[in-house]
């Protein structure tokens, strides 16, 4: 049943002489939710950014089905439409309303009918509980609301893969959940997703697969239950120990 969608082969990413990611190989199937973990600075965000060519890569290939994704691809904007991304910083366009933010790319890039996209946007906004904020400006929204809009904005492009780069990291704790619920809902619907996060509870709940990146390599590629209960490598144990401290409270 598994239909491979995203292929990463021998990916090499360097900043100058410094190797950030070395020989990364990964195949993501359609409908799979992959959570990428790792300590700060391990290259997990960079990895995500290589997947839609926001970062040029120095070696290897990234493909969506047969189409290769590189920084200088001629059809880069076509491929990026198929890969939605939500960032950590609230990246809505401040001069446009919520609806304007959502409509911009589908109407200007894909040339779709405005009425049709508006209808879809309203349905998506309703789904994330923000239908009544369609005419608000980003400055009038809370961080959690902004991130939900950013997710809707990406979804309106009908991407085949969604990338989430620490989308709850900059949020106040009480707003983290509302964004995570939207992502869980997407996972339920069978969206193909790659998620970088520091929230272990959420990772465990949402993931079909956990990747642990350390020092530019994927050192674990595991089922979440196995990863969180019986991690194989020492590095994974060490990493999980970092969160042990918080767990007794969190698990209640």
């Amino acid at each position: 049943m598994a239909e491979p969608l995203l292929f990463v082969e021998h990916l090499l990413k360097q900043y100058g002489d410094k190797v950030i990611l070395n020989d990364i190989n990964l195949t993501v199937n359609k409908g799979e939710v992959v959570v990428i973990l790792g300590s700060s600075g391990c290259g997990k965000s960079t990895f995500l950014r290589c997947l839609n060519a926001l970062e040029p890569i120095q070696g290897g290939t990234v493909r969506l089905r047969e189409e290769s994704i590189t920084h200088d691809s001629k059809n880069l904007t076509d491929i990026r439409q198929k890969i939605g991304m939500v960032f950590q910083s609230y990246d809505l366009f401040p001069h446009l309303t919520v609806l304007g933010n959502i409509l911009l790319a589908p109407t200007k890039v894909q040339g779709r009918d405005k009425a049709e996209v508006t209808q879809e946007a309203m349905a998506l906004l309703e789904r994330v509980g923000l239908k009544d904020r369609a005419d608000s400006y980003p400055a009038e929204l809370s961080g959690g609301q902004k991130q939900r809009v950013a997710i809707v904005r990406a979804l309106a492009m009908h991407p085949e893969v969604m990338l989430f780069d620490e989308v709850t990291a900059a949020l106040d704790p009480e707003m983290v959940r509302e964004v995570q619920d939207v992502m869980l809902d997407l996972a339920e619907q069978g969206k193909t997703m790659l998620i970088v996060t520091h929230e272990m509870q959420f990772a465990r709940a949402v993931a079909d697969r956990i990747l642990l990146i350390d020092d530019g390599h994927i050192i674990e590629d595991e089922d979440p239950e196995i990863f969180f209960t019986a991690p194989k490598s020492d590095k994974a144990k060490q990493f999980l120990n970092l969160f042990e401290f918080h767990r007794p409270k969190k698990n209640k």
């Binding site: 439409q81 991304m85 366009f93 790319a105 950013a150 990406a154």
Partner: peptide, 25 residues
């Protein structure tokens, strides 16, 4: 910078980004 990046991630070309995102701001 993230205004440019989120526009790029949505598939906007550089020209579209300039006219629809950067210039109005």
């Amino acid at each position: 910078k993230h205004q440019y990046e989120s526009a790029a991630a949505l598939g906007l070309t550089k020209t579209q980004t300039f006219f629809h995102v950067i210039l109005p701001q």
